[in-house]
Design a protein around this nucleic acid. Structure first.
Lengths: 387, 387
DNA sequence: TCCACTTTTGCAACAGTGTTGCCAAAGTGC
DNA sequence: GCACTTTGGCAACACTGTTGCAAAAGTGGA
């Protein structure tokens, strides 16, 4: 591979624009319903004629379709275009220690099916993988159209690029498991693996901006310098922004979306949120240090002090919001789901007290599984409109 | 403006590739010297013929030039191409409270001149701005070619997009100063404003990867999903990676480069590193909270405990490396420059003790001013190779 | 000294992108 | 019924990178 083969030729250009259009239609599909060619031209900055050509190609491929007419405003009414959401499906799996949750989603990433099964990671790897593959197959079997692959969300540390697990707390025989390739071989389908926090963050990203009005943020583009991202930086089709997904379950971790893109770091290590020191002389953590946020937070949970846990989570969130200038915070994980309102309020309170006024929300319970499915759908909205 | 006008047409494509080539030549200019057309083709992934056309256009514009021949390897020797570094110049200014440091740089961002002058922010804004403008003019006057603008690095908080200062600690009459526009008016030149930490981070980014061998990091590109950045994400022409610049002076802040791009956040607020809580029951900070890293660190400095300050900085760095999976840490700021070796060692020690083995370096003293100049040079390496 | 060989670069023709100019289609409103 | 507005497609176009081929400029061996 080239060290930095980022030169763009005509096929790349075409793929980029096609993916952009498809992404806008995906976002629209999850909101009102559709967009016209004129809408797309306005939002992409391309000419209407270019959009016509692009949508014609996508229509030929069966990825989008026309959908009636909009109400006219004094001229010819706009023809609606929408994602042919049923044209492709994906399976997303959340491996949560003792439970497996699988969802089937359409091309827009919307859930259209669900399965749950117990999962015993204590079994031999080969057996367990067979069970996981069987669940994925069973989920895929309910799809009305082709299934393009399966995504898996699981606790880190792991390497997203290679799909290899580094370590699974409590189950040392899983260390080094080539999860992606093993599942892909069993399924005969493309498989993608990522941390549960990253998967959930993708689901939140795809769900679009917070329903309520967001915080004030000027949209004025100006002539100042901006080293870094060139053409092509974009988010989930809607407002580009930043948020952190904080996951409190058997551990504490984060999924970071910065400027509309998930930040994984070079070794899929980003998001290690739980082992920040917040009490230098605090109690020892199993990581070897003292005063880690995770240790304090889980201790509070263990003694039933959910308010205290939420407050601690709020402190960590405040640190993070300050460091990254993040627009909103989303909470998730089994512990949070036990008292969503309490955690939301507790975290928001600490954030406000520290002058970091950002909206706080709770992610849907299936966010990890949904996001895992998005892992395999992503290529459609990035460049894979080729072929 | 379009909400997300990221559609790419032919001019955008051309600009992207031209900027990419120029950026590679800039990086080369700061290292060995030059690259041939064949080198560029290899690194961009474009065909040699495309590179020939692109370089011909850049040569017509006087931005690059041929530079002798490489040693042949059994065929026609490669013709060297290099940035016409003297074709453009820029001024970078660091406003550091009581001192102004201005540098003149060439197109490659290399320093070719320097001026220092006392600065009294206690004076009326108008007077002080006049003095700053005069220094910039004096610096620009020494340039052998056209000066395309001036960049200013100053302590935050401020808004990079608008160039407006929010607040200058100790000098309330500067609040709300439209620094960018005021200077641009006085100079008749484009001006860009950014936080000192961001400017320094840009300088570190432009300087390229750490001279010694970097940490291991697989370069295998694979077929997994990667929602987010599409074409065009790139860094300073060299290895794309992440690092944090930590600035310890009269305050404590950070400049974050993630995946090769400076992360500013939506409100230029990113990098507020000093007000992370690391001691929940610690001493009060002027920000209103307790146990902020900045308060602890500056207290250590005040009592002459530089080792203690370095250790605290190391704790903060470890938190940050864990959260963002960062490849290296770079230190800077007046306090660090007082004992570079001690801080480097102290921070590295804490990082290692916490299992975050990343290289630690100290930035050159003029990093902020140099980075400020890069703010105005950036458009050349992003898209401004247009008409 | 000559000649095959390799490698780099350029010229010319080409494929395919988005753009421009123009026009038919399909509504509203008087 | 007719002027007007708006949408979207057809055709010609400009300009991108690509492909095919040849010239330039070296090496190395006979």
């Amino acid at each position: 591979m080239h060290p930095s083969a980022s030169g763009a030729n005509l096929p790349v250009l075409r793929g980029h624009n096609a993916a952009l259009v498809l992404d806008l239609l995906r976002a629209a599909a999850r909101a009102d319903g559709g967009l016209s060619r004129a809408d797309l031209a306005e939002r992409t900055g391309l000419t209407p004629q270019a959009v016509s050509k692009i949508t014609a190609r996508l229509r030929t491929r069966g990825l989008i379709e026309e959908s009636g007419h909009r109400a006219p405003t004094g001229g010819k009414p706009r023809t609606g275009l929408r994602l042919a959401a049923g044209a492709r499906h994906a399976v997303g799996v959340h491996l949560d220690g003792e439970r497996l949750t699988a969802v089937l989603t359409d091309l827009a990433g919307r859930q259209v099916g669900e399965r749950t099964a117990p999962l015993d990671l204590g079994r031999p790897v080969d057996e367990a993988l067979g069970a996981v593959a069987a669940e994925i197959r069973a989920t895929a079997a309910t799809a009305s159209g082709p299934v393009i692959g399966a995504g898996v969300g699981i606790r880190g540390p792991l390497d997203h690029r290679t799909g290899v697990l580094h370590r699974v707390t409590g189950f040392p025989h899983w260390e080094g498991c080539r999860l992606r390739d093993e599942l892909a071989r069993r399924l005969g389908l493309p498989v993608a693996v990522d941390k549960n926090t990253n998967a959930a963050a993708l689901a939140v990203l795809a769900a679009g901006p917070v329903p309520a009005a967001g915080p004030a943020a000027g949209t004025g583009v100006e002539a100042g310098a901006g080293t870094g991202v060139a053409i092509g930086a974009r988010g989930g089709g809607a407002t580009v922004g930043s948020f952190a997904y904080l996951h409190l379950g058997t551990g504490l971790g984060a999924g970071l979306v910065l400027d509309g893109a998930l930040h994984r770091g070079g070794r899929t290590g980003a998001g290690e949120f739980g082992h920040q020191a917040v009490q230098l002389d605090g109690p020892p953590c199993k990581c070897g240090n003292r005063g880690c946020l995770e240790a304090l937070c889980l201790a509070a949970v263990a003694r039933g002090d959910l308010r205290g846990a939420a407050a601690l989570l709020g402190v960590g969130a405040a640190n993070l919001v300050a460091l990254l200038d993040i627009d909103r915070v989303v909470l998730g994980g089994r512990t949070v789901q036990a008292d969503p309102g309490g955690f939301r309020a507790g975290v928001a309170e600490v954030l406000a007290a520290r002058g970091r006024r950002v909206p706080v929300a709770v992610a849907p319970p299936l966010a990890v599984a949904e996001g895992a499915a998005l892992l395999v759908l992503a290529p459609f909205f990035t460049a894979a409109a080729l072929g």
